[in-house]
Amino acid sequence: MIQFDRVHLRYDSGISLRDLNFRVDPNEFIYLFGPSGSGKSSILRLIYMELFPNAGEVNVFNINSIRARRQDIAKVRQNIGMVFQVSRLLPDRDVYANIALPLELLGFPSKEVRQKVTHIADELNIRSRLNHYPHELSGGEERRLSLARASINLPDILLVDEPTAHLDEISKKSVMEAICRIHDRGTSVIFATHDDSLLRQHNARVLTLDSGTIIEDRIV
């Protein structure tokens, strides 16, 4: 489903990823684990094709990073749910409109949109917040909103970038549960974090990164 072949990525500031090789199969749960600056977010950005490798190639759903056209990129993203490290919610739209956006872009009829949005808002416990604006939400609610938007279209892959950062234990737990529920529906999850307490909570594959290389690939 996702395949990295000898991927190198260089920012202006210097090398960031070196010779990455790995693949991700359907319904896997993978932690990208590593200290700050080790390249976790960069890997996620390569997967949803916001960045392209300087050497090597990334394949996602049979779309190749070297040959991808802009329509292909859009197609790839339509099957990937993304929770960004810095929330990319639209500040001038309420929670409902934020969650509904991916469906509307695909042309779903508004009745169906309404059903799906209320359903997922129930699931993520933000139903009562649908008419609020993102800045009116607590940190945990905001993460759950991002998750709702990322998973509303039942994507094949869910990418989450530090979704539990700066949350208290209770909010952390509810976010983790939501992610696991999405995983249980058959979605592959790639979860970037530097918090090793999360790793011990359930079975998963852990890719440990250090300064842009994978130093360990294990199942816990």
Partner: peptide
């Protein structure tokens, strides 16, 4: 710009 970028990252085609 933020709107355009976000919508594109959410999977909108250039046309949309």
């Amino acid at each position: 710009y933020d709107f355009i970028e976000t919508v594109r990252l959410l999977g909108a085609s250039d046309f949309m």
